[in-house]
Structure formats: structure tokens, C-alpha cells
Computed example of a mutant assay.
Amino acid sequence: MQEKLIQFYSHHLGRDIDMLVFGDRGYPVVLFPTTMGRYYENKDFKLVESARWFVEQGLVQIYCPDSINSDSWYNRNIHPAHKVKNHIQYDRFLSEELVPQLQMKTRTHKIAVAGPSFGGYHAANFAFRHPDQVSHMFSMSGAFDIKTFMDGYYDQDTYFNNPIDFMQNANDPALWGMKIVLGTSDWDICLDANRKMSEILKSKGIDHWLDVRGWQKHDWPLWREMFPHYLSLL
């Protein structure tokens, strides 16, 4: 499986973002890491390996960008308003810098996004904020409410980066054409979060698949099972 490390300079972030790329052709899939995971986490825990067949067949190309969670949601040394503003710069890096490059390189109008655990939040938040850029969203044991990071602070920026809130009023027509999977399991600590998000989508008539797997924990074995299955839906 072809693997390449690149550094993508972001003008919005003012720095290089490390990113692993697997494969040299196929549908572009951006795969986010978990809570404080780095760009190599999904490789180290063999989530990318679970998709080897799809990469080697040239069906998908997987992009694993670094996160800035330590500068945003998980930075306890800055005001909550600054947390969300830092995340907005990351969102702009994705939507205005990375994704346009992937669209041009792969000659696709839209991309797929995916992620396990907090990476599932990133996948959902980005997809729901930018449905014009995303065709498929695969959240694996994701959570969708970031208010716990905000110490009671709440503003418009928080609202528009909190899918459990803004999706209740979302009306972009592209949302109704997106392929959405909310993956979870009976023993998943994020089971209730996925059920709640599913109810919001259902209330709006947005088609999606709430995939509740049996008796597995919020951990890599579950996500390694889910990821290739979801890629088969592309």
C-alpha cells in the first residue's frame, strides 16, 4: 500500500500541517484522528490497514491530516471563545485549502470524510457545515456536542460548530443528498449521542444509517470492522 508523508502549509493556521496519504488514486477520503491523536494515529492503530484492499485496488485514497485539538477544544489554558475560534481556523484550512486541492487532484466534485471517536465529531461537523463539499460522512462512535469543552460559555461560533444544535435548524439542500452513517454499538459510550443525532436527522427527513453493532466497546477493533464496511458504500 503506497504511503506518503506530506506537509501542507495552511495560511489560515499559519503553519505546516503534517498529513499521511495512502494510495495514489481513487475517491478521496479524509480520515480524522481521535481526541488528541496525531496524523499517524489511524495508521498506528491499523484503521488504515483495515482498508488496505480498497487502497490497493485504487478505489480510495485516504488522507490523514493532523488535528489541532490541543490548541482548540482540549486547550485548558485559553478562554472558551478562543477554543472555538482556533477550531474555526482549522475548519477554514479544511474547506478553503485542503478540500479544494483534493477536488482538483482527484477531479471529484465532493469528498468523503470519516473518523473514530472525536474524529467522528470532526467528520460530522465538517460534513454538516459544508455539505456542498462532502458526499459521504462516516462517523464511528462519534459524539456531537462540544458544550462540555466550553465551561458554560456559549456564543454563535459555538452554536455553528455544535452539530447537535445547528443541525436542528439546518436547511442546506445538499444535506438531503449526503450519504450519512452514524456507527456505534451496544456497549459504546457514545451510543446515546448517536441515537440523539439520528433522531434529529430523522425529524428533518434526512436519510441516514444508524448502525448499532452488537456488544462491542468504544475502541479500535470496532472501528476496524466498521471502516472497510462503510468504504464499500462509496
Rank of each mutant, 00 (worst) to 15 (best):
L47I: 15
L47P: 00
V48M: 12
V48N: 00
S50L: 08
S50G: 09
S50M: 14
S50I: 11
A51H: 08
A51Y: 13
A51G: 04
R52C: 06
R52N: 08
R52M: 10
R52L: 11
W53M: 06
W53S: 11
F54L: 10
F54C: 06
F54H: 12
F54S: 14
V55H: 00
E56Q: 08
Q57L: 05
Q57I: 11
G58V: 15
G58L: 09
G58W: 08
G58E: 13
L59V: 14
V60P: 05
V60Y: 03
Q61W: 01
I62C: 04
I62L: 02
Y63H: 15
Y63M: 12
Y63R: 05
P65N: 06
P65Q: 05
P65R: 07
D66A: 13
D66N: 06
D66P: 04
S67Q: 04
N69C: 04
N69M: 09
S70I: 13
D71E: 15
D71M: 03
D71Y: 07
D71F: 10
S72A: 10
Y74G: 00
Y74S: 03
Y74W: 13
Y74M: 04
N75Y: 09
R76V: 15
N77P: 05
I78Y: 11
I78Q: 02
P80E: 14
P80F: 12
P80Y: 14
A81D: 14
H82G: 05
K83F: 06
K83Y: 02
V84I: 15
V84D: 00
K85P: 01
N86P: 01
N86Q: 04
N86T: 09
N86C: 00
H87G: 03
H87R: 07
Q89H: 12
Q89R: 15
Y90H: 04
Y90E: 08
R92T: 15
F93K: 05
S95D: 11
S95R: 12
E96F: 05
E97G: 08
E97T: 14
L98S: 07
L98A: 10
V99C: 00
V99I: 15
V99G: 00
P100N: 03
P100Y: 09
P100H: 05
Q101P: 00
Q101E: 13
L102K: 04
L102E: 01
L102P: 00
Q103T: 07
Q103V: 05
Q103K: 14
M104G: 03
M104K: 08
M104C: 01
K105H: 12
T106W: 14
T106V: 13
R107T: 14
K110S: 02
K110T: 14
K110Q: 11
K110I: 15
K110E: 12
I111P: 02
I111V: 14
I111L: 03
I111H: 00
A112L: 09
A112E: 05
V113T: 03
A114N: 07
G115S: 12
G115F: 15
G115M: 15
P116F: 15
S117H: 12
